[in-house]
Design a protein around this nucleic acid. Structure first.
Lengths: 254, 254
DNA sequence: TAAGATTTGTTCGTATGTATC
DNA sequence: GGATACATACGAACAAATCTT
């Protein structure tokens, strides 16, 4: 690792921990380190950068928060290159929207554009094992809801269906984005009209959509999978609008 | 702020800085603090949590890396609630894909699904001022490229066009996602066939697409804007495939 | 301009906790 | 259990930045 290049007399505006964190990032890339690979010890980093322990530790916290390193105590311990988990990436991205009042309409506009696309690419590429898993989730809303609260529960279960479907896709970006939206809708959505009676008609057509979808996926009918999913998404959006759902403001815990 | 509740003898698996960071996050949400609002001083946090300065500072670095707080020295200084910038959110999300070899095909599948949707919603809602800005960017590729390197430059300029277009949209999620993809394609894409001669035909039709797009946006023709954008995206994807473009592996600097 | 006040930034020494052998 | 090798945490002191007077 190169010495912390504090070239010339130029005063860096950034603090030392930030500079150290950036240097370590670059070093990881240059060396082509992989998840699990060991980073130098604290004492070693102190020597190489010529900085005190506290400074180095703050740098490691900066990297830890980004999911780039993990740390273990004890012999053989130390800091290791970490692979950013989907969960952490979702939480970090959710923070971005915290002060930007994301609306249900915003999310559904994107869902309507993306999920039919996913369904189409999945057609003919879903194993019977996976179809069984999807059908199992559907059992959670086999009967129409009898209360608005139960309707919400079913909606969350339905989101699990979509998250699982996303996991089956081959496109890592598409998979992440659909999972992200499902997470937001699951964790951060509140229904403002919890007093309304469940809409049995929407339940019926929603369930039929998913049955049709699985059928199209099984038979490799991409066009039909796409169309069914689009209808399903539009219906879900209508349900949310009917319930005057809104996105709640809170940070997602680490 | 509540005392750091280390209830009973249960050993928390998470380190103290992490727990402090989580407590501060919760506190910000509970108090409904806004960007710019002041957080307690280091000394105050030390007292409230009963922890040493270094521990508190590590907690602040955890929050800083997420873009949740900013810190200033001097009188009137301290830590402040920060709004996560789009730039930081893009960088944090890009880290997620670092070890997951995102392909150009993945990105374009999502672009093709999203950008026509953006174009449609924008039709009739773009001011003449904004149209002028877009046309100005188009001047950067008024003439066909004469080298593969120049062709790449024009492609980057074209991405600026799309990023600017995204900024004009009202959907914060859609805007972010399109901006994110433009950033990846700008910063992380390398063309493997820099020796090939520029494809004048693709340049011509690409330019014509953008002209048609602006016309449709100006005239509020949503359907046409959508169709033109889709054709344009498909053409861009073909160009990238023609050049055997790949996503480079590197962390985006803070 | 200069001095003083306030707050974060950084260091050093020491002690403790934790996992491995 | 004891030795070893790590990170974790504390406390006191000093440095640097920046605002006010």
């Amino acid at each position: 690792m190169q010495q912390a290049a504090e070239t010339g007399g130029k005063k860096s505006r950034r603090s030392r921990p930030v500079r150290v964190a950036e240097a370590i990032k670059e070093w990881v890339v240059e060396q082509g380190l992989q998840p699990g690979d060991r980073l130098p010890r604290e004492t070693e980093l102190m020597e190489r950068f010529g900085m005190a322990k506290g400074t180095i530790r703050e740098a490691m916290r900066l990297l830890q928060a980004q999911g780039l390193v993990e740390t273990k105590t004890g012999p053989g311990g130390g800091s290791f290159v970490g692979e950013v988990s989907a969960e952490r990436a979702r939480a970090l991205l959710a923070n971005f929207f915290y002060f930007r009042n994301l609306t249900i309409g915003d999310i559904y506009q994107v869902r309507i554009a993306l999920e039919p696309e996913l369904a189409a690419t999945l057609a003919g590429h879903v194993s019977s094992r996976q179809l069984a898993e999807l059908r199992e989730i559907m059992n959670e809303y086999e009967e129409p809801a009898t209360s608005a609260a139960q309707e919400r529960e079913q909606h969350v279960a339905s989101l699990k269906f979509h998250a699982l479907l996303a996991e089956m896709g081959g496109n890592v970006l598409l998979r992440f984005l659909i999972g992200f939206m499902a997470q937001i809708l699951t964790d951060l959505t509140v229904f403002r009209r919890l007093y309304t009676t469940p809409n049995v008609e929407l339940w019926r057509s929603g369930r039929q959509h998913q049955i049709d979808l699985l059928d199209a996926l099984e038979n490799g009918d991409a066009a039909r999978a796409r169309n069914v999913m689009r209808s399903h998404m539009e219906m879900a959006r209508d349900l949310m609008e009917d319930q005057e759902a809104v996105v709640m403001k809170r940070f997602i815990a680490e």
